[in-house]
Write a protein that binds this DNA or RNA. Structure first.
Lengths: 142, 142
DNA sequence: CCTAAATGTAATATTTATGATTACATTTAG
DNA sequence: CTAAATGTAATCATAAATATTACATTTAGG
């Protein structure tokens, strides 16, 4: 899987952590440890889905536009990475005579479709706020 | 995800389809549409886990050594592709000051661990025989 | 009105991952 | 003894992922 899902979750958690602060792509990039262009591309997806607001020009950047308790990792996955579980390599070949070789590609695709649904369901049990809470919980003193 | 899981499933279904036939890596490779070296590597994993028997030398090859009604895609996934769901790219960096950036890699890893478990559970509902049945079921006449 | 700082986005380069090929040692039936 | 098979390492080729560069556009503020 590519890592845009990670970038989206990280960025949203960051924005939820500083909800009044306008964060630039440079700031997000250095926190996430990637480059600003990737951040802008991912943020653009999140904007199109209404999860953040964007301010262009001087002093601009990104700010949260959703309730972190309501947005789940399942939603974010669907926005950034839908279909990524499906193997792009298919065994066999539809043009072959053999019933196994000619059809198994389709059968495996169906199974991956189901896996995708089960994966989204799993991710939907976590909200942005859940992740933020894990990160800001005070640690036991040693 | 890499495609060794697909190759393993396809090969096992093929062997289950011809349970008395010794299939060479060349034969499997041409049915799966890949090269014999990959087949042998994957078959070797399956052999180590007792799912097939191998006969070296002239006239050798692979033959099923399990009950296709008992072996699930979950088991096969664990053999060939365990951990492949975990994104190898980590956002943030443990050495940074920021609590988000320094810890989110670990938190996301935990989530991927859980996803892996849920994925294996999903795959465990399908057996080799289930796949074979889908492929050999007679189609409606048109 | 100008400038500096920001996003949007395309094009390109670099790096990493995946898959294919080649080569050869080993095994074994006949 | 030979031919046909597996096991496996090394190398090559291709594809995918990520980073960089470049530049058009937007906009706050002097």
């Amino acid at each position: 899987m590519n890592s845009e899902f990670n970038i989206a979750v990280h960025s949203l958690v960051f924005l939820a952590y500083l909800p009044t602060h306008m964060a630039s792509s440079d700031l997000l990039a250095s926190n996430v440890c990637t480059n600003p262009v990737r951040i802008r591309r991912v943020m653009n997806l999140l904007k199109k889905n209404g999860l953040i607001q964007v301010q262009k020009g001087t002093g601009g950047g990104y700010i949260l536009n959703c309730d972190p308790k309501e947005v789940t990792l399942g939603q974010i996955y669907r926005i950034t990475s839908s279909g990524s579980l499906v193997s792009d390599w298919r065994s066999g070949d539809p043009n072959m005579e053999c019933r196994i070789a000619s059809q198994i590609g389709d059968v495996m695709s169906q199974i991956y479709e189901g896996a995708e649904i089960s994966y989204v369901n799993y991710l939907s049990q976590f909200t942005i706020q859940d992740i933020l809470d894990k990160l800001t919980a005070d640690k036991k003193q040693v």
